[in-house]
Computed example of a mutant assay.
Amino acid sequence: MTQDTGLFIYGIVPSDVEPTLDAEGVGSPPGEVSAVRHGELAALVSEVELAEPLGRPDDLTAYERLLDGTAAVAPVLPVRFGTVVTGEDAVADLLDAHHDRFAAALDEFEGRVQYTVHGRFDEQAFIGELLAADRNAAALAEQVRGRPEGQSRDQRIRLGEMISQAVELRRESENRELIDAVGGYAVTDAARAPSHEMDAAHVAFLVADEDEEEFVRAVEEFAERRRELIRMRLIGPLAPYDFAGAHQLVG
């Protein structure tokens, strides 16, 4: 390693974890992934050029692919994307200085993975439901129907605000109902910020291996009851990204 390169850290794992021979890291071309060990801990790393900008979609994909693949076979504490240190000595110092915190995280994540449930309202179905239930919204919709935008600007703004408020209220309700419906099969959960104005639900769950089948079944049943209004996606198993903050160096 030269002064022009550093080590990109993906995550912390038990010291007996070995990256697979075909594991690919960030960068172009992809870096070779290795483990830097210190005591009972190890860090998954790859060498990167310090002058090379990181953050391309391919880099994030490589970061997540490596961590998700690791989480399927061993506990892993994700390190914030983009963390680069000067070399193996710096990695060892990091593992030594934060040993207890990292070890606690690995104990917490042993035999557990993250699933993320993401739902998005069908916009037309949601608006139709709102107009059927709210006379004021229906009246505004009637006022703007067929009129040029310039002549109905104020009404369109008010209607848009009503729709936005209705989505927010319904989102809060859907998140609560989702957690009530499937949270019993999860160790813990974390509501996520919406990624789209029509998001209906967005919650991460930490799920024990032995409960995965029941958790997935419960999510599928929840989604089926809402299929006319909400398009639901179950994403996972993943590394425990949403539950690593309490243990990470950078929150």
Rank of each mutant, 00 (worst) to 15 (best):
A190N: 10
P78Y: 00
F8M: 02
A208G: 12
A201E: 00
G128N: 13
D107A: 14
E213Q: 15
A208D: 02
T116H: 00
V117H: 13
F8Q: 02
V84G: 05
P240E: 13
A200I: 03
Q143K: 06
G119A: 15
D16K: 09
F126V: 08
P53C: 08
V73C: 03
S28H: 07
V48T: 07
D16P: 02
E228I: 02
S15F: 13
E110D: 08
V26L: 00
L67I: 09
I12V: 15
L169Y: 12
A132H: 13
H98K: 05
E214Y: 03
G55V: 03
L7N: 01
R37I: 04
H247C: 04
P148H: 01
F109Y: 01
A23I: 11
A43W: 06
D58F: 06
T61Q: 15
L140I: 06
G119M: 12
Q143S: 05
L41S: 05
A97T: 09
E88N: 03
Y241L: 11
G150F: 06
G184T: 00
E168L: 12
A35W: 07
I163H: 03
D68V: 00
D68G: 14
R226T: 05
H118W: 15
G150D: 10
A186S: 04
F215I: 08
R145I: 13
R56I: 00
L7Q: 04
L54I: 11
V216I: 09
G6P: 04
M162W: 04
T116L: 01
V13E: 01
R170M: 03
D211C: 02
E123Q: 12
T86P: 01
R101G: 08
P194H: 03
A92G: 11
P53L: 13
T61G: 13
Q3S: 12
T61L: 14
A166F: 08
D134F: 06
E210T: 13
Q3G: 14
D107G: 09
R176P: 00
A35K: 03
A133W: 03
G128C: 03
M1D: 11
R226M: 06
A105P: 04
F109D: 01
H38I: 04
A133K: 09
P240R: 06
L54R: 10
E108D: 15
R158M: 11
Q114V: 02
F8T: 02
D134C: 01
R120A: 11
E212K: 15
A218H: 01
G160C: 15
V117R: 08
V73T: 08
N136Q: 09
V84C: 01
G160L: 04
E177Q: 15
M198C: 11
V203S: 05
A223D: 09
D211N: 14
R147G: 01
H38W: 04
A97D: 08
D199P: 12
L169T: 13
D16Q: 11
T2W: 11
G55A: 04
S28V: 07
H247L: 07
I127L: 13
L229K: 00
R145A: 10
R101Y: 06
E18R: 11
A51Q: 08
R233V: 08
G150N: 03
L94N: 00
L54W: 05
